[in-house]
Design a binder for these strands. Structure first.
Lengths: 244, 244
DNA sequence: GCCGGAATTTGACCGATGTCAAGTGCGGAT
DNA sequence: ATCCGCACTTGACATCGGTCAAATTCCGGC
């Protein structure tokens, strides 16, 4: 069983360049012509590995670089004035972090590793220069931001439209889909986030999330043991949570 | 009383260029150096006025241009697979429309005029060329997208965190703030959207929205008569709805 | 293998909000 | 001016999910 959200498959050599990276198709260079990938990877540094629980970016800190998770996973979250945490989303390998930072040049949320994590960083200075030169990269960045915006809006609508059980079903179906794109099992995985994180992402309480897991289990959609999940009817699960 | 969300103040001459536009500070050119404003306005066309209820953009249609509302207001919305409408947001003068379209080059939601509406359009072809040439515009577009993303995420968090009355209060406070930036009265305005639109934006039913208006009225926060709203304690209203 | 704290599950209860159903009033059309 | 339709308001009731509390399981350290 997969115990972590890891990019490298067994036996794949260490990732040294964007061209050879197992995540390339999912990452920024995914839709770039080879020449641009070349140029891009010269601007990419490798961040040093972080332990679980450490911050990848801090709310309010200047956005010095664009970060992409390479292995492990993280949660993007912020704290309201009255001290309640809201979880904006979970970041998997190949996904960018803190895009909201483009708004003001300053991150507007925290991103925290949920497990040991590696990442790549593109310093803004170099990135801006490249954006000027590479039309493909320009398009890609806009695509990324537009996609994030669309997803956020869509998710918001869904949260208000469906009940707790469906939100959890949709969350699991979404995880499954994203893991599958990374070459991991879409039916059997370990969640790296707590029930509480899931709850604060879905606008529920952790008790309700737990009950929803229970309900889905009783109804035969999945098996759960703590954070290990096995989806028994993944196609159908996507449907019960599924709306536009 | 303002009967519409209009950009032009009484006596202001017709808007013929970005430089002289009353909305300039709020719009794309707001943070651009004058030289770039020059270049930009040559790429801007004026859309022909639309009647209330007509579509500004259609979900699924290719994103041929970036549109900005010039006068009037609109709602951005989409329909789930099971036919339920979700309202992503309301667009006021100076605000861009359908930014999610950057994701796939295709709009992923409908935008419908809530009242007679005028708008500007920047065809994508010209816009892309300008983005290549103008560093300020590049930054501005990223700022716009990042801001939209941040706002969407923040709003989502708030919706799940506060009760119906607070959501409505926050919605009104937000409207008030946005109208004020446009030189309109922050305390006395006519809502261009129905209770139903508000409900579907806030993740509530129209009955609950109506009751919330009633509660806020009884508590002395505002006066309401159908769509005409008078905020009696705007500062405080921002607080009761107010979180990070 | 055992222990202790944290995460998770489960249960009981209550309140906010959705649902269904009447009213009410505003605005446009005749 | 009157009528009609639609948006909005208001009420009664059911229900989902939040809250508080307790039991149980999991996991890491010894």
């Amino acid at each position: 069983m997969n115990t972590r959200f890891h990019a490298k498959r067994a036996g794949t050599p260490e990732c040294v360049s964007c061209r050879d990276c197992a995540l390339r198709a999912l990452c920024l260079p995914g839709h770039l012509p080879l020449a641009e990938v070349h140029a891009l990877e010269r601007a990419v540094e490798r961040g040093r590995p972080l332990p679980a629980g450490s911050a990848l970016v801090h709310c309010g800190a200047p956005m010095h670089a664009l970060l992409v998770v390479r292995s492990g996973s993280a949660k993007s979250h912020s704290v309201t004035l009255d001290g309640v945490e809201q979880v904006h989303g979970f970041v998997l390998p190949g996904e960018a972090v803190g895009l909201e930072g483009f708004a003001a040049g300053v991150y507007s949320c925290d991103v925290t590793a949920l497990e040991p994590l590696e990442y790549c960083r593109m310093p803004m200075r170099g990135l801006e220069a490249l954006i000027e030169q590479l039309p493909g990269l320009r398009r890609e960045i806009l695509r990324l931001l537009g996609g994030a915006l669309d997803e956020s809006q869509r998710l918001r609508g869904q949260l208000s439209l469906c009940d707790a059980r469906n939100r959890v079903a949709r969350f699991l179906a979404d995880m499954s889909r994203r893991l599958a794109r990374r070459g991991l099992s879409p039916t059997e995985f370990r969640l790296s986030m707590s029930r509480r994180d899931i709850a604060r992402h879905l606008g529920l309480t952790l008790e309700t999330v737990s009950r929803s897991f229970g309900a889905l289990k009783r109804e035969g959609w999945l098996r759960v043991r703590a954070r290990d999940v096995t989806l028994l009817r993944p196609e159908a699960l996507a449907v019960i949570g599924g709306r536009a």
